[in-house]
Amino acid sequence: MEIIEADHLSKSFGSFKAVDNVSIAVGEGEIFGFLGPNGAGKTTTIRMLTGVLTPDTGSARICGIDIHKNPLEAKMKMGIIPENGTVYSDLTAEQNILWTAKFYGMDSISRKKRADEILSDLGLSERRDDIVRNFSKGMRQRISIACAIVPSPPVLFLDEPTGGLDVFSRRLVIDTIRRMNDEGSTVFLTTHNIEEANELCTIISVINKGKIIATGTPEKLKKSFDRANYIEIAFEQSVPKELFARWGISRAEPHGDKWRLYTDDPDQTVKYCAELADLGHLRILSIATSTPTLEEAFVQLTEGR
């Protein structure tokens, strides 16, 4: 069953088309990664999906409820961390969470119990009565996450949830996303952090200049770039680039003290390298075949488009 559905969403600001005919379908229990460079249209899309912005054309449904026709009912199904993860600075950590919980109709006992639970999970129990204004960025982001997950929503929308966080806060955020997903929440995550997407997401769409240019599992996306298979080889001696202009090597790039050789046929290239070393009296220090990373797939997808 599709929990998040977007049909042909478009949004322009003046003459600038921020989102162009975007359709998305996210199944129950997925962690959906929405990847794209800055300004690609990720935030505008998430704002339309969460009812913050009205699309020029198209529609979106959350758990089957049209977000623009029945915004209150649809928003009851979701928890959201907006871009920048802001919370009310003049309220305490606990007041922010309890006030948010009231929107979802939670009674005072369950509100309090859930707030205790979340504050403890996020390492904020001791700061519960402190005004958020004095918190660090990482702590504010944790409060923002606490507000999003307090109603245990079926759908979580997270707009760059780990942007600018230290390692500890980032780890805490990622663990929380995983836990919410384990407990049954479907997660929609925008990020430009490729490693984060690779680590967390079960399915990824790449958006660039307002259009979705690829969708698939992280592995499928990586595999779809066969030409990006490469071997990495290090010689003891320095070797000119021209030496690699053979045997189906499409591109040779220096990477530190290694050469990265892009090829359609890694086996043949390894053989060629061994031959080359033998004939040229070169000593191979290391040799390894690699499949492309998600980052490489992403760069190839988005560059020049």
Partner: peptide, 14 residues
């Protein structure tokens, strides 16, 4: 200015 307007709009409000 405080960027809480988006947070407010994303809650179950109209």
């Amino acid at each position: 200015r405080e960027k809480t307007y988006e947070r407010l709009l994303s809650l179950p409000v109209t």
